[in-house]
């Protein structure tokens, strides 16, 4: 079966600092891959390379067998029209009300009429547990948890085939984090989408992953089904999932 997304020996450096030293991982259609790893190990850079927000120095990235590593213009736009993304800080447009944030991809990306897009936005807001009274508010009037929900509604507004989640529960209390994790799992299941998430929250991993990959020093050092993570036999994975200070992992100081 052709992988939905396939990364082969992807490398990325910033000056003399190598962040990705050859990332190789496949995501099959319908799979929910969660990439774990400490701060500065290259999780966000991996995601940005797939999205084209950063250009990989080497290796290749394929989507449905088609290479997108250096795709530009219409080719990149075609790929982006198939994805949805939830950013770590929600990244809502603070000059637009909630419904326009959710409908943004429909109006600007697909040319849908504003009235029709508003109806879709209200449906998607309902799907993440937010009522129509929230639609007219601005992002600055919402709590962190509500902003994450709106961002999730925006990510799923165009019914994307592939969803990306960047640290979806960072900054949330445990209960709200669980609510977001449940919403992510349910919405990904509803859409039948392929999902790639990055996180260091093990509760998220256990809730939303079907497959886990661990990134360390710019390489995937372990990859397997989420059920096997507690018996990986990998000292790095064991140290990470149990959050121990002692072990083979030496944390990087700078973000990556």
């Amino acid at each position: 079966m052709t992988a939905k997304l396939s990364l082969r020996d992807v490398t990325k450096s910033f000056g003399s600092k190598t962040v990705l030293a050859g990332v190789t991982v496949d995501v099959q259609p319908g799979e929910s891959l969660v990439i774990i790893g400490g701060s500065g190990t290259g999780k966000s850079v991996t995601l940005k390379c797939i999205l084209g927000l950063l250009e990989a120095d080497g290796g290749s990235i394929h989507c449905d067998g088609r290479e997108i590593t250096h795709a530009r213009g219409a080719e990149r736009a075609a790929f982006l029209s198939r994805i949805g993304m939830l950013f770590q800080g929600a990244a809502l447009f603070d000059s637009l009300p909630v419904w326009q944030n959710v409908a943004f991809g429909l109006i600007q990306g697909r040319g849908m009429a504003a009235l029709e897009a508003k109806d879709v936005a209200l449906t998607k807001l309902a799907a993440v547990g937010l009522g129509p009274e929230v639609a007219a508010l601005f992002p600055s009037e919402l709590s962190g948890g509500m902003q994450k929900r709106v961002s999730l509604a925006r990510a799923i507004a165009t019914d994307p085939e592939i969803l990306f989640f960047d640290e979806p529960t960072t900054g949330l209390d445990p209960i709200m984090a669980d609510v977001i994790n449940s919403l992510i799992r349910d919405r990904v299941d509803d859409l039948g989408a392929t999902a790639i998430s990055i996180t260091h929250d093990m509760a998220s991993v256990r809730k939303i992953a079907t497959k886990v990959a661990m990134l360390y020093q710019g390489r995937i050092i372990w990859c397997g089904p989420v059920e096997e993570i507690d018996h990986s036999g990998n000292a790095f994975v064991d140290q990470f999932i149990h959050g121990r200070a002692d072990g083979p992992i030496r944390m990087a100081v700078r973000a990556g």
């Binding site: 999205l51 736009a77 982006l80 029209s81 993304m85 800080g89 990244a91 447009f93 600007q108 990306g109």
Partner: peptide, 21 residues
């Protein structure tokens, strides 16, 4: 502010060219 809060990246992922918008 849009750059450092990833709003410009969000524009790109929503199929909107930030230079144009």
């Amino acid at each position: 502010t849009m750059r450092v809060t990833e709003q410009i990246d969000a524009l790109t992922t929503l199929s909107t060219n930030p230079m144009k918008y």
